[in-house]
C-alpha cells in the first residue's frame, strides 16, 4: 500500500514538473512564433513585389488587408468583406451572391488585433449580432498602394497537389498580370514534384497577362535553354534587357511541365489559374459596391 502511494505521489510530481517545463516553453515561444511567421510573410511579400533588403520598399507604399467571409444565415448565403477605412477603423460589407450590395457595418477593432483570426471573428460577430459559427473565414487579399494608387494585389491560396496541399502566394498588378509566384508550403517528392519551388518553374508564371492566364495549360515539350536562362537570372547572370525580351517572347506560352512531375506542374498551373480568375471576378464586384456606396477606402 505504501508502495502505491509513493508511486502515485512521485508520478504526480513528475507530471507537474513536466507540465511546468512545457507550459513555460509554450508561453515563451508562442509570441516569438507569431512574430517570426509575420516577419517571414512580410519578406515573401516584399520579394514578390521585387523588393529586397538592399532595395527596400519606399515609405509611400502601404498594404491594406481585405478579409473575405462567407455568412450562412437561415439557409441564405452571403459574402462579407472586412475592409479598412481611410481614416481609421474597419467596415464590414456584405454582398449577396448576385453581387448586389446588402449592408455596411462599421467594426471597431484594434489594428494590431485584426491580424488575429479569432479576435477578428469575434469583433465582426458581435457587431452583426451573429453566432460566430455562421461566419466562415475564407481568405485574405492584400492591396498594395503607392500614395493612394493601387500598385499590386497579393493573394494567398491552397490547392491539392500530387501528394497533399500546395499553398502559394501570388502577386498581381492592377490588370491581373502575374508579378510573381511563391510556393509557401508543399509536400511533393524531393527531386520530382518538389522542383516546383525552383526558379525555372515558378518564374514561368511571372509576366503572364490575364488573357493568357485564363487559358493557361501545361505543355510537355522541354524547356528552351534561353528561356531557362532568363528564368534563372540570378544563376546565369544575363542582363535585364535580355530577360525582358525573352519574357516578352514567352509571355503567352503555356507552362513547361517539370520532367517527371507533370501532375504537380499541372496542379500548380490549374490552382494559380483558379485563384487569379476567382479574384478578378470578386474584386470587380467589390470595387463596384465600394464605389456605389461611396465607402472611403484607402485603396
Amino acid at each position: 500500500m505504501k508502495d502505491i502511494s509513493t508511486i502515485i505521489i512521485r508520478l504526480t510530481l513528475a507530471c507537474i514538473l513536466a507540465g511546468v517545463v512545457m507550459g513555460l516553453t509554450f508561453i515563451f515561444t508562442s509570441n516569438a512564433k507569431k512574430h517570426n511567421e509575420h516577419v517571414k510573410e512580410q519578406k515573401v511579400m516584399a520579394s514578390l513585389l521585387g523588393y529586397s533588403k538592399n532595395h527596400p520598399m519606399p515609405e509611400s507604399m502601404a498594404m491594406h488587408e481585405v478579409y473575405r467571409y462567407v455568412i450562412t444565415k437561415d439557409a441564405n448565403l452571403t459574402v462579407g468583406y472586412l475592409v479598412p477605412l481611410q481614416e481609421q477603423g474597419f467596415t464590414f460589407i456584405t454582398i449577396d451572391l448576385d453581387g448586389r450590395f446588402l449592408s455596411a457595418t462599421p467594426v471597431e477593432i484594434q489594428p494590431q488585433l485584426v491580424i488575429d483570426e479569432n479576435e477578428r471573428q469575434k469583433a465582426i460577430a458581435t457587431r452583426l449580432d451573429l453566432d460566430p459559427q455562421f461566419l466562415r473565414y475564407a481568405d485574405k487579399t492584400i492591396i498594395v498602394t503607392d500614395q493612394g494608387r493601387r500598385q499590386a494585389y497579393l493573394l494567398t491560396g491552397a490547392f491539392p497537389g500530387f501528394k497533399t496541399f500546395i499553398s502559394v502566394m501570388l502577386a498581381l498588378d492592377p490588370s491581373f498580370t502575374i508579378l510573381g509566384l511563391e510556393i509557401l508550403e508543399h509536400e511533393e517528392d524531393p527531386g520530382l514534384g518538389g522542383e516546383i519551388v525552383q526558379d525555372y518553374f515558378k518564374n514561368q508564371f511571372k509576366g503572364k497577362p490575364f488573357t493568357a492566364i485564363k487559358r493557361l495549360e501545361v505543355t510537355k515539350t522541354p524547356l528552351p535553354d534561353e528561356y531557362r536562362q532568363a528564368l534563372e537570372a540570378e544563376k546565369s547572370g544575363i542582363s535585364k534587357k535580355e530577360i525582358t525580351a525573352i519574357q516578352e517572347q514567352y509571355k503567352d506560352h503555356d507552362i513547361y511541365a517539370l520532367t517527371g512531375a507533370t501532375i504537380s506542374s499541372d496542379a500548380v498551373t490549374r490552382g494559380t489559374k483558379g485563384i487569379v480568375r476567382k479574384f478578378a471576378y470578386r474584386i470587380a464586384i467589390l470595387d463596384q459596391v465600394i464605389q456605389g456606396q461611396n465607402i472611403a477606402v484607402p485603396f
Binding site: 516553453t25 509554450f26 515561444t29 508562442s30 516569438a32 512564433k33 517571414k40
Partner: peptide
C-alpha cells in the same frame, strides 16, 4: 516548440 518558433523553415 523552439524550432517551430525560431527556425520555421
Amino acid at each position: 516548440l523552439v524550432l517551430a518558433a525560431f527556425l520555421p523553415e
